[in-house]
Design a protein around this nucleic acid. Structure first.
Length: 946
RNA sequence: GCCCCCGUAGCCCAACUGGCAUGAGGCAAUGCACUCAAACUGCAUAAAGUGUGGGUUCGAGUCCCACCGGGGGCACCA
């Protein structure tokens, strides 16, 4: 046996290696778990602990967007945010705060169910196994979670409260006068007392029981409606607007989605449109996310205007009522309900050929156009954005200000679902209307004067109104700017009964039911009238029953006319139930839809606060402590919420909505759930394709002079996501095995700012490994295992470096700039490796500062430095301000913007002295000339203008 | 088409409110030490003038304008 086969023997016995890291990491993870190191004390209840070192301290609630336990397991990108929050939470805990950080699982919903369907096992079985796998993978990373608070949305103890919250929503209505939700009991009391008129004016007492229930149901925040919804045959369920992509497909699975009239559960999120919009201003969120929510809510301010026709008025919505004098035609959505009423038997006298679409009668033209429009997919409609189509319905309306006769068209560029589904067309001030007017040869009248030199078509900017007066009707906008003209015309419309100022929203009510199995059952039954009845709280939870076949009934993805069938409806013995709801045992039918996957994530952050509470979903004291407003006007909520951008208008909007309902009903003291939001970047990866376009394992690709080879074959590099099909997945498990969890954590945190996406590069991980080895070596002798720490004081330079680093690291930790914090720690460590022995006064703070990033090695070194308890609650080092100010400052001296010399002066030198020294230093460059100007920037530099 | 964000050594990234790019830090590269050799480790070195073109300023990576490139959002929303 040759000597070459003897590896590792010359590695120093006490070097920090992957094997040693693994041993240290497992030992400390066990210690933390055994001692409950990261348990955070509550003010009240079973999780209260007055003896805890942080009991009563300033609180900090750090939250991650909890994961789906998908069957694919984790890759190195997934834990990025979790490691980030862990570093932040560990730092804040050492800085003196009582930190709550827990991790749960969002385990209901389509992905979990689809995975279960694929593998042919019960979703609960696969989901629970996945949760265990996730927990093990996350535990290996040393995340400091309070594991007592871990919840999963599929736990009966959890979803009974999801159902309970649903009941609160169901039993509430939105009072627009109060601007908040109130219990329906108060609504009924108002009807009974006569202080609120019934919809048809009859006294409440004269309404039948069924009629009364209908009136109340129409007010509820959760209600059943028969309305056009997004039906996705491929998934066998309906979907919320937020789950449908811009090109009309399901976000999950990418199946076509069709509009169908179906009876479904809705949540009245539109009632909260104003508050969801306005309260964005109270939030510390990334601006792009706020912008996406604003766009989604889509508030438009303008007016409703009625255009009289022989068949009654047609109401339009416009944001530009000031341009009504230029409304030369009208357009209704093809589906608009008045179209059928308006269509006459024959084309009126003088109908232009182009308007008829070549049809003999308006009826035929309308039918044909509708059919063509319905057959088009959204993608096709988008592809044809430029080409305007439409057809004249054969009827005219009257422009209420000009009295002019305007033709009425239908066209698919007007959407049935927005505003009133009808517009007044003002080609001169609207590009779409201009395009349409050109195609159909319709008159164009400018009512806003474009600026001189304007050579475009429609002019949408500001300018004085022209052609906008009707003296006989008492209205004259001419000369007014757009804003003034709007105000004036709205006044006139209201005074003359032609319309009123109005606000329109893009936001639709939230479609809340799914025809799937793996979700929370509704706590709802129906009696013989078919109206929903809430089950009393005492009957919660309504447990998800076992079924033989939990697969949803899916259809041909293109089969728009198929009808949903809920898996729960197959369990007739569960559906048909006899209950005593206070008036004796009766037969009822259960609701067989389930809630959407978003339900549990709408409130899980509240359950972490009080996970064992069986009397309430959260005790008010616990909510107020962890999430309550911190000063008057503060919205409250979690102090940090970290997750991906993909939830901008789904989870984040729904959760805000539920939280506001709970706030209105007095269950929580915060009116926003997430005070501060942080979007972590994505870890991306290179993938490689061979000439046939097949992916080759990224691990096996080698780089030669900027080209990439897989064996002999040159391969093409592409940059994107990490995924099985791209053969470029790297798992945290591999990294932990090769380097240890601490190295992996340090690497992920040092790659760049947390919010920036960056490519994964396995070969760069070694840099973080070497750093931790150096940290180890500053404290422990690699050959003997002895401490190489001295109690002698540090030299001045080392001490100053230490305090500069402490100061910088604290700032970076507060600002979530972990990459620069780590750079400073590396700088300090590199400064120490030059010393023969490490002064204890530097070694201890270094270990403490490393702890948030590499907690296991830090605990181990802390122990070796002679401390016998965890460092998790040891004060984070504080910089001595006296050591931060330098005694002397070196000023660069610029002459005409170029550095020509340097001077070193006392830090407190007067400006005149600095100026004199600087001029002397650059006298040569000035060549005896008198400088024109000398600028001294205190503590920075001197600039001389020659 | 409209809106937002970003372009700094071969690569990932620093640079506080405009103020020294001897780049904070890391990877890769090169050299040296250790080794029979290598790996590991350590020490050292080289390498951009900040996407392009203008402007403001004593001074611009940082501010303004235009353009180019990359990423994201919205997309007939009246």
């Amino acid at each position: 046996m040759s000597e070459a086969a003897a590896p590792a023997t010359d590695i120093p016995p006490f070097r920090y290696t992957a094997a040693m890291a693994e041993e240290i990491e497992h030992r400390w993870q066990d210690t933390w778990e055994r001692e409950g190191t990261f348990h955070a004390p509550n003010p009240t209840g079973p999780l209260a602990d007055p003896d805890h070192p942080r009991a009563g301290a300033e609180k900090l609630y750090v939250l991650d967007m909890f994961p789906y336990p998908s069957g694919a397991g984790l890759h190195v990108g997934h834990p990025l945010g979790y490691i980030g929050t862990d570093c932040y939470a560990r730092y804040q805990r050492m800085a003196g705060r009582n930190v709550l950080h827990a991790m749960g699982f969002d385990a209901f919903g389509l992905p979990a169910e689809q995975y279960a369907v694929q593998t042919g096992t019960h979703p609960r079985t696969t989901t629970e196994a996945n949760i265990e796998r996730y927990k093990a993978q996350l535990r290996r990373l040393g995340l400091a979670h309070d594991e007592r608070r871990s919840v999963a949305t599929i736990d009966t103890d959890f979803y009974r409260w999801t159902q309970w919250i649903f009941l609160q929503v169901f039993n509430s209505w939105y009072d627009p006068r109060a601007g908040r939700a109130r219990p329906v009991a108060e609504l009924i009391a108002e009807f009974e007392g006569g202080t609120r008129p019934t919809p048809d004016g009859r006294p409440w007492a004269e309404l039948t029981v069924v009629e009364r229930r209908k009136v109340v149901d129409d007010h509820r925040l959760a209600y059943v409606s028969e309305a056009p919804v997004n039906w996705c045959p491929g998934l066998g369920t309906v979907l919320a607007n937020e789950e449908v992509t811009a090109d009309g497909r399901s976000e999950r699975g990418n199946f076509p989605v069709f509009k169908r009239n179906l009876k479904q559960w809705m949540m009245r999120i539109t009632a909260y449109g104003d508050r969801l919009l306005a309260d964005l201003d109270t939030l510390d969120w990334p601006e792009p996310i706020k912008m996406m929510q604003r766009n989604w809510i889509g508030k438009s301010t303008g007016a409703h205007i009625d255009f009289p026709t022989d068949q009654g008025p047609v109401r339009v919505f416009t944001t530009r009522p000031d341009t009504v004098f230029g409304a030369t035609y009208m357009v209704l959505a093809p589906e608009h309900e008045l179209v059928d009423v308006l269509v006459p038997a024959a084309w009126p006298e003088g109908t232009k050929e182009a308007w008829t679409g070549g049809h003999a009668s308006p009826r035929a033209a309308v039918e044909a156009y509708r059919k063509a429009a319905a057959a088009k997919t959204d993608v096709e409609r988008q592809a044809e954005t430029k080409e305007k189509t439409g057809v004249f319905v054969g009827a005219y309306a009257t422009n209420p200000v000009t009295g002019g006769r305007v033709p009425i068209f239908i066209a698919d560029y007007v959407l049935a679902g927005y505003g009133t589904g009808a517009i007044m067309a003002v080609p001169a001030q609207d590009e779409r209307d201009w395009d349409f007017a050109e195609v159909f040869d319709l008159p164009i009248v400018r009512t806003v004067q474009p600026p001189a030199g304007f050579d475009g078509k429609a002019y949408t900017g500001d300018g004085p109104a022209v052609n906008s007066a009707a003296p006989d009707r008492g209205v004259d906008l001419n000369g007014l700017g757009v804003a003034d003209a709007k105000a004036r015309i709205i006044e006139w419309l209201e005074a003359n009964g032609h319309g009123a100022g109005a606000v329109t929203w893009r936001l639709r009510d939230w479609l809340f039911s799914r025809q799937r199995y793996w979700g929370e059952p509704f706590p709802i039954v129906y009696d013989s009238t078919g109206a929903p009845i809430a089950l009393p709280e005492s009957m919660l939870p309504v447990e998800l029953p076992e079924v033989d076949d939990f697969s949803p009934k899916t259809f041909d993805p293109q089969d728009a006319d198929s009808n949903p069938e809920t898996p729960l409806s197959r369990r007739r013995d569960w559906v048909e139930v006899e209950l005593d709801l206070g008036d004796g045992p009766k037969r009822y039918t259960r609701e067989t839809n389930v809630m959407p996957q978003w339900a549990g994530s709408c409130w899980y952050e509240l359950r972490y606060l009080d996970p064992t509470n069986s009397a309430r979903f959260v005790a008010p004291e616990n909510e107020a402590y962890w999430m309550g407003p911190q000063q008057p006007g503060d919205c409250g909520g979690t102090d940090l919420y970290v997750g991906g951008q993909e939830h901008a208008v789904l989870h984040l909007l729904y959760a805000r909505f539920w939280h506001k309902v709970l706030y209105d009903l007095g269950y929580v003291s915060s009116f926003e759930p997430f005070r501060r939001l942080f979007n972590q970047g994505m870890i991306q990866a290179y993938a490689f394709t061979d000439p046939r376009g097949t992916y080759v394992p990224a691990q096996e690709v080698v780089e030669v002079d900027g080209r990439y080879f897989h064996g002999e074959t040159e391969v093409r590099r592409e940059y994107g996501k990490m995924g099985k099909s791209l053969k470029n997945v790297v798992t945290p498990d591999e990294m932990c095995a090769a380097y240890g969890a601490d190295t992996f954590r340090v690497y992920e945190m040092s790659m760049g700012p947390l919010e920036v996406s960056r490519p994964w590069e396995t070969r760069a991980v070694v840099g973080s490994y070497r750093f931790l080895q150096r940290v180890w070596r500053t404290v422990v002798d690699e050959q003997t295992g002895e401490l190489r720490v001295t109690d002698a004081p540090a030299d001045e330079a080392t001490r100053r470096l230490l305090h500069k680093v402490i100061d910088g690291v604290r700032g970076d930790m507060e600002g979530i700039r972990f990459n620069t914090a780590i750079a400073k720690l590396i700088e300090l460590t590199n400064g120490l490796t030059r010393l023969a022995e490490t002064p204890r006064e530097v070694a201890e703070p270094l270990v403490l500062m490393v702890a948030p990033f590499a907690p296991h090695i830090a605990e181990e070194l802390w122990r070796r430095l002679g401390h016998d308890s965890t460092l998790a609650y040891v004060d984070f080092p504080t910089a001595d301000p006296a050591l931060l100010v330098a005694e002397t400052v070196t000023y660069p001296v610029q002459v005409n913007g170029k550095v020509r010399g340097r001077i070193e002066v006392a830090a407190d030198a007067a400006e005149d002295a600095v100026r004199a020294a600087a001029l002397e230093a650059v006298a040569g460059s000035l060549g005896g000339k008198e400088p024109r100007k000398v600028i001294v920037v205190k503590g920075r530099m001197v600039s001389v203008v020659a």
